[in-house]
Nucleic acid binder design. Sequence first.
RNA 1: GCGCACGUAGCUCAGCUGGAUAGAGCGUCGGAUUCCGGUUCCGAAGGCCGAGGGUUCGAAUCCUUCCGUGCGUACCA
Length: 548
Amino acid sequence: MSVFEENMLQAVQNEIYLCLERLGWERAQFSVERPRKNTFGHVSSNVALTLAKQLKRRPLDIANDIAAELEGKIKGLEKIEIVAPGFINFTFSPEYFQAYIPRIRKEKEDFQKSNSGKGKKVQVEFVSANPTGPLTIGHGRQAVLGDTISRILEWHDFDVTREYYFNDAGRQIRMLGLSVLARYNELMGMELDIPEGGYEGEYIIDIAADFRKKHGDLKTENDLELFINFASNAIFITIRDTLKRLGIEHDVYFNEKDLYKQGKIKEVLAVLGEKAYTYEEDGATWFKATEFGADKDRVLVKNTGEPTYRLPDIAYHREKIRRGFDLIIDIFGADHHATYPDVKSALEAMGFDTSSIRVLLHQFVTLTRNGEMVKMSTRKANFVTLDELMDLVGTDVVRYFYIMRNMDSHLNFDLALAQKQTDENPVFYLQYAHARICNILLHSSEKGIKDYEDADLTLLKEPELIALMDVMLEFKDIMDLCKKSLEPMHLANYLYRLATAFHKFYSVHRVVSENIELSKARLQLIDAVKIILANGLKILGVSAPERM
RNA sequence: GCGCACGUAGCUCAGCUGGAUAGAGCGUCGGAUUCCGGUUCCGAAGGCCGAGGGUUCGAAUCCUUCCGUGCGUACCA
């Protein structure tokens, strides 16, 4: 049996290009895609439609010419059909699909793995939540998105650095220190006095108690720095543990504080000043953002002498570029969309090329419980933490749910639904397909079919099997799409479709039957399905259970 | 006001760079199992793709106006 090196889309596209060349027609823009309906074949192209205008001929006639010219050129092709208004549909033969089964089973986790990243260095910055409280459900979306995107890039052979920008300087962190101090004083018998804008969550009390355990009773008025360090460190540890529980570990925690210690903040001010992109007004230092198209200039250093968040952001991104990544991906919540243009402008003002930076914005998570919106705020204590969510529904569900929607859309996370853990949940449907395959493989060996390596794969030819194998081969296209769009949703949807194709096949055909030869062939098939399911789930960070 | 998004079935959402009769899950109603796990499968009902205009062979998709929702528009992060 021959092995087909290219996938269907590439093979068809290349042959159409060659065909147009032979016919002396210009290269037009045309699509080669998988049609929505399987009655349109496995691959479909609109090339005749797009050529109609420049050739001044009927699309159907053009399609006929192209089809005739393609005759016998595409390996593994069963038939070409021309359909009004001028689509050319390609149907591949069962042999084409069958040829992939041994490859999948041989290459296993490396099947169709891409090396298109060529080891290029990519930095993915995500979460970067202020260390002022536990991670919430809102942070969870970004955490899972960032990690899954990282996994997708790693699959494509990029060298990925997962990074967390740790805001351990500035006003918010001082508020945290003051809040813990207030609780500490309360423990010491003083009246509780949480500062305006301070943090009121229960965890502040716990930190204060731990502080007292470690440091005992202090006269604390002048030890704010001690409280800040203790508190931010305590919260850092809980954040890291929460992420670890989700299967996420950052390679680098970049401390904002270091930007100050190493003089990077001053450097940025100096460089921008030298190039006359800053000026002083009302006691503050301003950046001339209007010269880069902004509606107004921005403050970099307040009249109190304290930098705004923009300045360290600029300094941090300057460091990112200087560290020599080929690609820098920033994942931010939608509330940050206004800040990046300023950072970009400042970097360009300093003479940096910002084309390697790609900013991904994701919309918010709306949490509902019994149909009612649950509002989230770290300062007030009425939030649901990411840990609580994992307690409720498990990490597999959390990871899948967060990426199953387009990041441009609001994610509606219905807690009541998520807690159900029933068949309404796509994760179980998917995992069940994997578990079911494992069970069938187990069953077959109990039935005495231990070795099915010598199967006759030409027996795999029923429509449900062809449809299943068609979906299996789509894996590479989906991974390419994920890389291009940096949108893991496509993989989640794909795996769901793969599971569906398998369940449909299962419901009409027995795998293990009295017909030993047929059983062997189908065992090879489902073993291959299992491999692709497991590969995809691994990229999503979701487990592939052998039984449930 | 201005900027960035979003608006598709009762609900939650797909629909990739414009393509063929707009799809799925849940919910509703009705079916399928002597059998490898029914946590499965099949069928039905349910849509002026927010509204109007434009571009073209062809629009849910691109442009434009309007309406609605979210997030920004800080010397908060």
